[in-house]
Amino acid sequence: MASSSQNQGLSKYVTLISLDGFEFVVLREAACISKAIAKMLNTQSNFMEAKDGRCVFGEINGIVLEKVAEYFYYNYKNRNKEDVPDMEIPPELCLELLMAADYLDT
């Protein structure tokens, strides 16, 4: 994927990697709702992440990061919609997700 859009310099997709090695490929535009990710992927910066479109989160485990990726999709899908459904969160994940949301500034 990354190679196909090298002309434009940026891939449409980015990869989020959890501390336990799970990878989630998400739409760049959707992931950039997170201010932290947007900062990482900012091409003006010299972050490694900006070059290869891979963000490693050393503090977020795979289960939580999967929910985060799901949220990005949920948010993106519901843009410009009037009635936005609720997103379900398993209670046992709520606190970790809260911490992740704060960390990602989302």
């Binding site: 947007a38 843009r79 609720d86």
Partner: peptide, 23 residues
């Protein structure tokens, strides 16, 4: 705005806080 679009969707923080509140 965050990102390139506006949305009525709650923030992830709000979604998580709501889940916390329900427990």
């Amino acid at each position: 705005s965050r990102g390139d679009y506006k949305s009525r969707a709650p923030s992830l923080l709000e979604v998580a806080l709501n889940a916390c509140s329900r427990t």
